[in-house]
Nucleic acid binder design. Structure first.
Lengths: 200, 200, 200, 200
DNA sequence: ACCTCCGGGACCCCCCGTTTGT
DNA sequence: ACAAACGGGGGGTCCCGGAGGT
């Protein structure tokens, strides 16, 4: 199996714990839970082997769980920031799609989506990791749903649309990566915008 | 790591080669490429260890590629059969969503979607497997696109909508599995049906 | 490997150093030197990880050595107390065998004998620990030998008999534990009593 | 921890499986179950790691179990051979003691007794290994008991004496190793011979 | 053509006993 | 008195091949 070794380790100017988490987040996002080994995480984090179980006594699964939590926090922070700036749901969707598309391309199609990558292969076999993934999806959906309710959709409609948006976005990211065509993400987002243009 | 061993091996009344492929398809679909080992495939296939490299000289990756090809053939056959029965795109979408939802639940949330499961972790690191996955996604999209063109959508619109449908459906399958709620697949399909109700 | 975790930690009302020693003594006695880790000792002692090297700069081996010294002191104190009470060699042997047998059973066959447990695997590779074990065996033998000399045996005979008594007792403890039958210890003691019934 | 690496690997003129077993028997006998690693066994056996789990799918514990079984078979064969040659119990005891003593010394006090070494630390935590050890002790005792019954002892007496002989012999081996004095084994055997001189 | 036996190492995640800094 | 960090194995499993039989 070719390794596509990441030459550039994460920047060392942070705590060991944080470097491990950042390296893990990137690698899990790129290749999923099982395709990434702890040795690779530690190498990328420039962290010695033994200090991993100091910071993460429950091992690889705990690292994945905390990496997901970190991802969730960053995602929500981004959404809140856009909300504070007054972006509508459609504008938010368009902007995020554009960002994700360009980031996907820039990474040379190495990057994936954290939740999907970790969910495949670990759900439902690793219950604690499963729970963390579910919690992230849930909070994401709730936030998008709230946005839609603010724009006049009923709670039921908003939730369903939020679900669809998230599902389609994640799916689009997967396919864009497979096709190595970032425009897919943007086109899917356009179709989704049509779905939420006006409350019916 | 808990093993969730599949008790029922695939039925032995077929050729060794076929049993291996069937076992591989099921396991890869459930847990992805890296989380499944060759030993497990062979055990489930009731196949002797050494005979794997007789049938699949290129090893695990070749098995995955042929399993994907098998999956693609089955999917297209199903779509063609529905088309022959005169189903519209919306009807096809509704029916498949219902089937997938019930099948997801019946498997106790063990099953996933073949292409997504194998894509995560193997794209783009395993080029031949990547190519097979891409080909499957492409043919799927082409078929749905054709269906939509037949109902009056322009080629551009049809392709974009087909892409969105596939993306959203795959995403919905992932989230439904994570949430262990099969209705998600159906609700997403309903939203998608609204998108393709009438050519604009 | 099953862990057989000891639920009841040693009582915390003593100094950290002492708690570590008591926990170590129990664990080494149960499972030997190599099967017990420092982490387990510290957990059982409710002692923080880092403070171990404060009290025992030479690490695990030093802990074992001091635990053996503690064991030796307790054994000799017990023998002296019985001697002060006027017990004959035979009576001492019978009493100790009965005590050890019942204690073995009460521990659910977890307990072993300190010297044997630590000797296996550490002799002769760890010279300092080896020396401590040897000193304990020697003092034990000397005490029993003195008892026999007081009852009329020659020095040579007394030493040989003491050696045999200790050997047979330790061996009996091992086998009783393997067979989970505490009567073995008592039956062996009875045979030994026949050996020392009267000086010939 | 000093390693006392055995330079001379076991002779390579046998099957891999057998070489692993022979190396394991020697190492477990010398240092016990937990102090010996699989890597060390394989190095001594000149066997690659992967072939170990071909022959011993249950790993280290299975190797230990089979090594014990091998030891048991050799011991019984030796006893049967002596019996066939018409040795009495006392003669057998004396001869074996002398052999064990000289072998202990010749090994530079590295060798121990297989059953005791493996029992410490593994009993009762590893039930399958425990069972194998128990079976070996049992068969040994039965054989010695039968010998004594043939010489006129009652079944009860013979069993108890056999138990004592085995216990004292094993104990003597431990102490002789600790004291690095092979005469202990012989002196203990002499005391035991006094016990079985004539049926009472 | 099809399969079995037996490796062959690299690598898996985990935990070891220890040292450093505070 | 102790938290943090440290590397080096711990046992076990990975995917893959070669030799030989039928």
């Amino acid at each position: 199996m070719p390794k596509l070794k990441a030459k550039a380790a994460v920047e060392p100017s942070t705590s060991t714990r944080d470097r491990i988490l950042r390296a893990a987040k990137q690698l899990f996002q790129q290749r999923g839970y099982y395709a990434v080994g702890t040795a690779e995480i530690l190498e990328q984090a420039q962290a010695p082997k033994g200090s991993m179980y100091h910071h993460f006594p429950n091992g690889k699964e705990q690292i994945a769980i905390e990496a997901i939590e970190k991802h969730r926090a960053e995602l929500i922070a981004r959404l809140l920031s856009l909300e504070a700036d007054g972006f509508t749901a459609a504008e938010t969707l368009r902007l995020l799609a554009k960002e994700m598309a360009s980031w996907l391309k820039k990474s040379n199609w190495l990057e994936g989506t954290m939740l999907v990558s970790t969910a495949v292969g670990s759900v439902p076999h690793l219950p604690k990791l499963h729970t963390a993934i579910k919690a992230s999806f849930d909070e994401w959906r709730e936030h998008i749903g709230k946005l839609l309710m603010n724009e006049g959709w009923s709670k039921t409609q908003a939730n369903s649309l939020a679900q669809t948006i998230i599902a389609a976005t994640d799916g689009a990211m997967i396919i864009a990566r497979v096709d190595q065509d970032e425009r897919i993400v943007i086109k899917v987002a356009e179709d989704l915008v049509r779905l939420i243009e006006r409350p019916n």
